[in-house]
Design a protein around this nucleic acid. Structure first.
Lengths: 121, 121
DNA sequence: TTTTCGTATGAGCATATGTTCATATGTTTG
DNA sequence: CAAACATATGAACATATGCTCATACGAAAA
């Protein structure tokens, strides 16, 4: 580990204090950091990503999602719950079925940015 | 579970076929879906998010990151490895220290979109 | 060259996560 | 009301993940 005491690290003392100050000013609250990580965690699963890509095209019921993605109704349902809790999708009941759709356009934008990133070189 | 056979689901047959066709056309390759999820997984941890917020402000060495975020050098180093592998940060050596900085601006954009989303209502 | 400093990394452990299975809930139909 | 259908949910299990500890690596200084 570096430095013998708090202020001494990498032989930089002033820069250190400066950095601490700036970071303390710009770093979001603990709650927001946690919520942010929580949000991205939702995007961090290929099953949920696939569900979102289907919802980019149409409003569909759980049953169709399961069929199109070739997965169990239960698995899909569990993931939809997570997507809904994080307000990425919304649902409405039509008879026995429940149709899911995108909650807002941030979802498209975030995924678009992600695609741009991984398509570099 | 729904439907007795493949084409029969929620009493919708044609819509089903239509959906399958559209999804097959627009759904990215398995590899890309996996990479996308992998990328967002990187953003899905508050420690890494905090590291990125520091790098938003300045180019810093591992030691300073550990100090500013009040975490072990090892823990920070492990996370930096993940961030680097996914090309979110880059590094350069200066003497004994290694300075890390943002790899590109997609990082800022993605996090900005995320913040917008969680700040709704 | 040996020591010191800054960083990287592998093993181990505790926790988190995704899927399956069984079952519950809610709606429509007979 | 009972049966059938669509979806939701809890428990269990296997895998993934983040941190710690010990240690290795790499560069600079003695």
């Amino acid at each position: 580990m570096c430095g013998k005491n708090e202020a001494e690290c990498c032989e930089q003392v002033e820069i250190h204090e400066e950095l601490l100050k700036i970071v303390n000013e710009t770093m979001p609250e603990e709650t927001e950091l946690y919520d942010l990580a929580e949000l991205f965690k939702v995007f961090g699963d290929s099953t949920r990503i696939r569900i979102l890509f289907v919802l980019f095209e149409a409003e569909v019921c759980v049953c169709d999602l399961a069929h199109v993605l070739n997965m169990t109704q239960s698995a899909i349902s569990h993931q939809l719950r997570i997507l809904k809790q994080n307000k990425l999708v919304k649902s409405r009941r039509v008879g026995k079925s429940i149709f899911y759709s995108l909650a807002d356009d941030h979802v498209r934008l975030i995924i678009a940015q992600g695609r741009e990133h991984i398509e570099e070189d």
